[in-house]
């Protein structure tokens, strides 16, 4: 029997979660589609369901512990309206589905759904964002990249919920408008159409160049492998080199990192297209960095 729970506090929710393992439903935009039934029948949920949207404790955006923290039930459009949100995340959220869906969908839900093509993931991973998981027993913070292990799979335990998504303020400041001339942020969604689209791939790149040197560089690619790929080893090779050499060094190392980009053919696009486009977007990013006046 599928039960529906409607906790009124986070504590009640956690107690229910540990007792019943009910599936958390916030915006419902993924779950309602995944378990869609014949029109006018309730969805075919595989187990009990627990609504979270009503929990005021999960609706907030605030700065704490050197992080910009976004409550787990906050809808994407509420996040988009907040001026403190880093540009990379705002760009990604703004292109997810359509306004009506973004009024329901939560950022935490997009993470928990763990689709390889989830558009919020490349920027979150570039920003080294983490999720705070809470249970009746306590809480733990995990980088988003470690939280997701495979398509549709996360390390979320049966008694846990995503309490918040946390973006390091150090990154927010680094990418801040005042640093704009020194930092470059690219978010690019290659979708099936210009709006209300699912991604063939999406990428987020960040670089901070100062005094002719690459101080920081980060590259994340979505929908090109089973989970979002962050090219950490490539980033290490490029950090600290002079901007003028960037393109040359990139060319010499990029073959080593292409292996991480191993997309599939599906009805939405082809492995060839995804791979070539991902690499071309990377090349384009590097060459733009090199061409920058501050470089």
């Amino acid at each position: 029997m599928v039960e529906f729970y409607y906790p009124e506090t986070l504590n009640e929710a956690l107690e229910l979660r540990s007792r019943t393992g009910a599936l958390p439903l916030t915006g419902g935009t993924d779950l309602m589609v995944r378990y869609e039934n014949w029109s006018s029948l309730p969805p075919r949920f595989p187990g009990s369901i627990m609504a979270l949207k009503q929990l005021n404790e999960l609706h907030y955006i605030r700065e704490e512990d050197d992080c910009l923290c976004i409550g787990g039930a906050t809808a994407m459009n509420r996040i988009l309206e907040d001026p403190r949100i880093p540009e990379a995340l705002a760009l990604a959220l703004d292109e997810i589905a359509a306004p009506s869906l973004r009024n329901l969908a939560s950022l935490a839900g997009n993470i928990q759904n763990a689709s390889p093509a989830a558009d919020s993931l490349p920027p979150l991973i570039v920003m080294d964002a983490s999720v705070r998981l809470v249970s009746s027993a306590g809480s733990r913070d995990l980088p988003v990249q470690e939280f997701i292990t495979a398509p549709g799979r996360t390390v979320l335990q049966q008694d846990e919920l995503i309490e918040s998504v946390r973006i390091p303020l150090s990154f927010v400041r680094q990418a801040d408008a005042r640093q704009a001339e020194k930092s470059t942020i690219v978010y690019r969604k290659v979708g099936t159409r210009k709006a209300n689209a699912l991604s063939k791939l999406s990428v987020c790149f960040f670089a901070h160049c100062e005094d002719g040197e690459v101080k920081d560089i980060r590259m994340a690619l979505g929908a090109v492998a089973a989970t979002v790929v962050r090219l950490q080893k490539a980033e290490e090779k490029l950090k600290g080199i002079s901007c003028g050499e960037l393109e040359t060094v990139w060319k010499s190392v990029k073959r080593d990192f292409e292996k991480a980009v191993r997309p599939i053919d599906d009805q939405r696009s082809t492995a060839f297209y995804r791979k070539r486009t991902a690499l071309r977007l990377l090349d384009d990013f590097i060459s733009r960095l090199q061409d920058q006046p501050s470089a």
């Binding site: 359509a98 159409r193 210009k194 709006a195 689209a197 009805q267």
Partner: peptide
Amino acid sequence: FSQATMADYIIPTSMD
């Protein structure tokens, strides 16, 4: 048909 839903079969939106 491989395109099984309206998320798969892509008709134009107002933005296209």
